[in-house]
């Protein structure tokens, strides 16, 4: 996703000299093309994320469209107040890019696990929270947040199922995509964990269970209509995220549906519940350890539908 983002950003920077990329001393090799082509639209703020974000605000107030860039939590956590008070409150077009969502940097330790960012960022008034689930969404979101005023947070995963665009499909910021049209159950995800969800959907399809698969690339603003339809048409919803369940995608879905008066027959959040991970491992390994991989999703569906089917028969 990172490379897709940079490739699209190069196109955008070529067309619009207001675009500015500020890195917090990261992006070795990855940013080379951008740095070479747009030296005047690039800045290394050093390992100093608070100042990076304050600089971004200052430049945005002077008319730039700014991207701040770092990995995992560094891009938003220490500098959260700069994002809130400076960039967001002043309606600046500052786009906060976090490379390495969830357990993308699994072996590096908890400093590099970005597992609370959705919750934190979506609590900030007016901030757009984007979490692409594939390469196409990544590219389209990059363009969309450039054109969207105010602060946007873009969460980029190391893993990706590739390109899931359907023929003729048009991208819209804030609109959850339907990747599969099943009616037996809804599997909804945000971010690169989509690759696990699609694997799970394939396994389920082989077993005669046709899941509707939703990709919520924009957490905020949230598309409640697509979820309300899914609840009505498929009965049960299972949300999947490589992120804490406290305030993440599952929370948004539950809050929004309840408020809209739509209650699915069953609802389950698959996400992180076990606290900080001090276990070392690859993204794939940690997904299995923390029960957010394809296998867990499949068994969750079968458990739920097993009970549901029995009720229907009775």
């Amino acid at each position: 996703m990172r490379d897709v983002f940079i490739a699209r950003l190069c196109e955008l920077a070529q067309a619009d000299p207001r675009i500015m990329l500020i890195t917090g001393d990261l992006g070795f090799r990855v940013l080379d093309e951008y740095m070479d082509r747009f030296p005047k639209q690039f800045l290394n703020a050093g390992v100093a994320e608070q100042n990076m974000t304050a600089l971004a605000t200052g430049m945005a107030l002077e008319g730039h469209i700014v991207f701040t860039y770092s990995i995992a939590n560094f891009t938003f956590m220490r500098c959260l107040e700069q994002i809130r008070n400076d960039a967001a409150y002043h309606d600046c077009n500052v786009n906060v890019i976090s490379v390495g969502a969830g357990f993308s940097y699994g072996q590096l330790g908890i400093s590099h696990h970005a597992t609370e960012d959705i919750t934190i960022m979506r609590s900030l008034p007016g901030v757009t929270v984007a979490s692409p689930g594939d390469d196409w969404e990544t590219a389209e979101l990059t363009t969309a947040i450039t054109q969207t005023p105010g602060v946007c947070y873009l969460r980029l995963d190391k893993s990706s199922p590739g390109n899931t665009q359907r023929p003729g499909e048009i991208f819209r910021l804030g609109q959850t995509r339907v990747l599969r049209d099943g009616t037996d159950v809804t599997l909804a995800a945000t971010g690169g964990i989509m690759s696990e969800v699609l694997k799970a959907a394939d396994t389920l399809a082989e077993r005669g269970i046709h899941a509707r698969v939703l990709s919520t690339h924009t957490i905020k603003p949230f598309d409640v209509a697509t979820y309300a339809n899914a609840a009505r048409e498929t009965g049960g919803i299972i949300t999947v995220e490589e992120h804490t369940v406290d305030g993440g995608l599952g929370s948004v879905v539950a809050e929004s549906l309840l408020e809209a008066g739509v209650v699915p027959r069953f609802f389950q959040r698959i996400g992180l519940r076990a606290g900080f991970s001090s276990v070392v491992g690859t993204q794939q390994y940690l997904r299995a350890v923390y029960g957010i991989d394809a296998e867990t999703i499949v068994s969750a569906v079968e458990r739920r539908l097993g009970a549901g089917t029995a009720r229907r028969v009775a």
């Binding site: 940097y105 072996q107 590096l108 330790g109 908890i110 590099h112 276990v279 070392v280 491992g281 690859t282």
Partner: peptide, 13 residues
């Protein structure tokens, strides 16, 4: 170090 299931993460723990 850095292996699945280990305690020795890339950054000191």
């Amino acid at each position: 170090h850095f292996q699945n299931g280990s305690k020795l993460s890339g950054h000191v723990s």
